[in-house]
Simulated assay, not measured.
Amino acid sequence: MRFFLLPKQEVVTVTQEATLRQTLEKMEHHRYTAVPIINHDGGYAGTVTEGDLLWFMKNRPGITFETANRVGLSEVPLRLNHRSVRIDSNMEDLISLAKIQNFVPVVDDMERFIGIVRRSEIIDYCQTIMQGAAAVEA
């Protein structure tokens, strides 16, 4: 799995202390629909999605983009539980999560966030395996 890991230094994340506005601006700037949330200990705390932010703002009519800097990300409920895996997990664990998540957060044995594995990397791996099997059969 280490081969597929995009290290945390290269991953766009937000902290639990971020504001709603900071989160929106970061996601817009990088054109991402979901980003990992990191807690104060460097651990993986969840994944926030555009949908989480939109539903939160819809259900709080007093919040505007201008006032979003007064709302903490910690107030936004996360609708989905994006699970992480440990660095020593197997490919089956990665594949099962990649079916339902755009990326799979990876943590070390101390539960600290160390990066992500993108769904596209897992699909490429599976495609390579399938092509190798097809070549052997032919």
Rank of each mutant, 00 (worst) to 15 (best):
E121R: 11
R118W: 00
R70N: 12
A134V: 07
W55S: 13
T67F: 01
Q22S: 03
L73S: 01
S74N: 15
T23K: 05
I95T: 15
L94K: 04
E25M: 07
V11Y: 15
S89Q: 07
G43N: 11
L97S: 12
G43E: 11
V71C: 06
Y44C: 09
S89D: 05
Y44W: 14
R119W: 01
M57W: 00
P77H: 05
I114H: 08
L53F: 06
D52R: 13
Q16W: 11
M91F: 15
I63A: 05
L20W: 00
L20T: 00
G132M: 08
E111S: 08
R21T: 03
E75P: 01
F3Q: 15
I95H: 10
R21I: 01
T49R: 12
R86F: 10
L73T: 05
P105H: 06
F56H: 11
T19I: 10
F3M: 12
V85I: 14
Y32D: 00
T23Q: 05
M110A: 11
G62D: 12
D108E: 03
K99R: 12
T47P: 05
P36I: 00
G72I: 04
Q131T: 14
S84T: 02
E50C: 07
M1V: 10
I129Y: 03
R118E: 01
Q16N: 13
V11T: 13
V12W: 12
G51C: 06
M57I: 00
T47G: 01
D93Y: 04
Q101N: 10
R112Y: 01
V117D: 00
I63T: 03
T49N: 09
T128Q: 15
V48L: 12
L97T: 10
G51K: 12
K26A: 08
L80Q: 13
R79K: 15
H82T: 05
E17D: 15
V117C: 02
V12Q: 12
M130H: 14
V76H: 06
H40P: 03
D88T: 09
I100G: 03
L53K: 07
P77F: 07
S120E: 06
R119F: 02
A45L: 02
M110C: 04
G62M: 10
G132D: 09
N39F: 07
N69F: 11
N81Q: 09
L80Y: 14
T13D: 09
W55N: 12
P36D: 01
V71R: 10
Q22H: 06
G115W: 00
E92C: 07
G51W: 10
I95C: 14
E25G: 02
G115D: 03
K58L: 07
L5S: 02
I122P: 06
N81F: 11
T128L: 14
G51M: 06
K58Y: 04
N59M: 02
G62N: 13
L78Q: 15
R31C: 02
G72L: 12
P77M: 05
L80R: 15
D108L: 04
S74P: 08
F113N: 00
L54F: 15
F65G: 04
T67V: 04
H40W: 07
S74M: 14
Q101A: 08
D52K: 13
H82R: 09
R118T: 01
P61S: 04
L20H: 01
H30V: 04
Q16D: 13
E92Q: 15
A45C: 07
V76S: 07
A34S: 10
M91G: 05
